[in-house]
Nucleic acid binder design. Structure first.
Length: 287
DNA sequence: TCCGGCACCTGTACGC
DNA sequence: TGCGTACAGGTGCCGG
């Protein structure tokens, strides 16, 4: 199975869309699985009809959301979910079983296929207000955007009453951080995932933010796929699998700083990996 | 308003 | 071998 698209992979996809589909006009749109457009009030037929003939202007991203602007007021919004990919290639090639939506273009060139094994991803045609698609207006900027304000982030963290990892995963506070990079950022910042947000020192919050930016930036650099031809996958498969992770998925392996075995805890029916020595458990954990 | 918990989905790994 | 179950994950939604 290929990896979950994290922010660096989504950015790679955005760049691929910018290169291969932006500037072209949709001839025909097909929805092959209704769940792919479940967030679109127009439904599969309405979505497909509304996409036909549209000109694709720019590919943009916030956190793990992607959108292609269609004009000043509307955009095609996409989330890759757990397994989504955007594939660009020969329009005559056979349809693979997990293609959920397909777009052909008026120039007759390569088509665009949204494939998604586990169907957590989705597409929808949405209004844009002040440069942001309406359904994601509640999402905070991601830490690599100019719009991200560290002071606002710190102030909001201080008002929270929860654990720091939960806060890192809350897209309304900071977007684009998933389970993997949350654990990695916390390891770099030497903070335990259950540290109560309201008790974090300002220096710890800024350390965490710096670590978050660092892991995302490193991943972006390592995950940058080059697109040599139109017929490559516009996805981010060379993402975190190509890098060494310090905490995530390393239960029992020695911490690279202190050699203590990495610990795995159950967290939100999932996992949290940390170094028991570098990231000591707080006195009053917020599980 | 804030917070925690769960539904959604399917391929893979593992135990009996 | 084959079956059943646990697990992986982000996000929207619901209830307290």
């Amino acid at each position: 199975m290929s990896g979950v698209p994290e922010l660096p992979e989504v950015e790679t996809v955005r760049q691929g869309l910018e290169r291969f589909v932006v500037g072209r006009s949709v001839a025909d749109a097909q929805v092959l699985h209704p769940r792919a457009v479940r967030r679109d009030p127009a439904g599969p037929a309405g979505f497909a009809a509304a996409m036909a003939g549209r000109h694709l202007e720019r590919a943009r991203r916030r956190g793990k959301y992607l959108w292609i602007t269609l004009d000043d007021d509307e955009a095609l919004l996409a989330h890759l979910g757990m397994s989504g990919q955007m594939l660009v290639g020969d329009p005559e090639r056979p349809l693979s079983p997990h293609v959920r939506a397909r777009f052909t273009f008026t120039d007759g060139g390569a088509d665009l296929r949204f494939t998604d094994q586990r169907t957590f991803g989705h597409l929808c045609l949405v209004p844009v207000k002040e440069g942001v698609p309406a359904p994601i207006a509640h999402i905070a900027p991601d830490p690599l955007e100019d719009a991200f304000d560290p002071a606002v982030f710190a102030a909001r963290i201080a008002r929270r009453r929860t654990g720091i990892k939960r806060a890192l995963l809350d897209q309304s506070l900071i977007s684009g951080v998933g389970n993997i990079y949350a654990d990695e950022a916390l390891w770099h910042a030497r903070l335990h995932w259950a540290r109560p947000t309201e008790l974090l020192k300002p220096a710890e919050v800024s350390r965490l933010l710096a670590a978050t930016r660092e892991v995302l930036t490193d991943a972006l650099r390592a995950g940058g796929t080059s697109f040599d031809s139109m017929y490559v996958n516009v996805n981010g498969e060379s993402g975190y699998f190509g890098r060494s992770l310090e905490a995530y998925g390393r239960e029992g392996e020695p911490c690279s700083r202190c050699a203590t075995p990495i610990r795995r805890d159950t967290f939100m029916n999932r996992s949290a990996y940390s170094c028991p020595r570098c990231q000591p458990r707080p006195r009053h954990p917020h599980w």
